[in-house]
Computed example of a mutant assay.
Amino acid sequence: MSDAGYLHGSCLCGGVTYRAALPVSHASHCYCRMCQKQHGAAAGSYANVASAGLVIEQGADLIAEYASSDHGRRDFCRGCGSTLFWRSTQSPDRIAITLGTMEPEYAGQVTREWFVENKPAWLPQA
C-alpha cells in the first residue's frame, strides 16, 4: 500500500507517531461527558479505522491507557497528555483515532455525531 493509503499523526510533543491504514469507516464528533472532559473541548473528534492497520512508528512506551468505562479504553501520551485513540473492548477490530493529531489534517467528512443531547449551548449555532 502506498503512503497515500494511510493517515499519519503524532502527539503534541512528537514523542508518539503513528500511521493507520485507510479506509476510514466514518468520522464523528462525540459529545459525551467523558470525551468532553478528556479533550477539554465540546467534543472528541475521531476517525474510525481497522485496528489491525494501526502502526505505532515511534513512542509506543509513551502510550498510557485509561479505562474510562467497562468497555471504553482511552490512550494518551504520557509525556504531553495528548489524547490519541479510543477503542471499545466490545469491538476490538476497530479503533478511533483523534482527528486533531493527524498530519496533514483530516480531509474527510464528519458524518456522525454521538450524544448530541450533551452538545454545549456555548457552541455557535449553525
Rank of each mutant, 00 (worst) to 15 (best):
M102I: 05
I63S: 04
C11P: 03
T89H: 03
S2M: 08
Q58I: 05
G9K: 12
T111F: 10
I56F: 00
L123R: 14
A107H: 13
P124L: 12
A67R: 15
S45Q: 07
A47F: 01
R74A: 02
Q125D: 12
A126S: 13
G9Q: 13
A60G: 14
Q90Y: 09
V116T: 15
A4G: 13
A47V: 07
Y31C: 08
S45N: 07
D70G: 05
F115W: 13
C11G: 03
Y66A: 11
I63G: 03
S25P: 05
R74N: 12
Y6M: 06
A126N: 09
S88D: 11
P23T: 14
A47M: 05
E117W: 08
G100K: 09
G79K: 14
P124N: 12
A121G: 07
T89V: 08
H26Y: 15
Q58P: 05
R33A: 05
A21F: 00
A121H: 10
S28K: 09
Y66I: 08
S10E: 06
L54W: 02
E105V: 09
I63R: 07
D93H: 14
T98F: 00
P124Y: 11
S28A: 14
E65P: 02
R19L: 03
W86T: 01
D3G: 12
S25Q: 13
H71L: 11
L7D: 00
Q109M: 13
C11R: 00
S88E: 10
A50T: 09
G81K: 13
Y106K: 02
S28R: 10
H29E: 04
G5W: 09
Y66E: 10
S10T: 06
G100W: 05
S28M: 11
M34L: 10
T89F: 00
D93K: 11
Y66C: 11
A50V: 04
A20C: 10
M102A: 06
T17L: 05
L99S: 08
E65T: 10
A60F: 08
G79Y: 01
I63N: 04
S82H: 01
M1W: 01
V16R: 09
L54P: 02
R74E: 04
G15R: 09
L123E: 15
N48K: 11
C35H: 06
H29W: 02
G72I: 07
C35Q: 07
G79M: 03
E113F: 06
E65W: 02
R19C: 02
G72Q: 13
S51C: 09
D70V: 05
Q58N: 13
G9P: 10
S2F: 03
G14E: 04
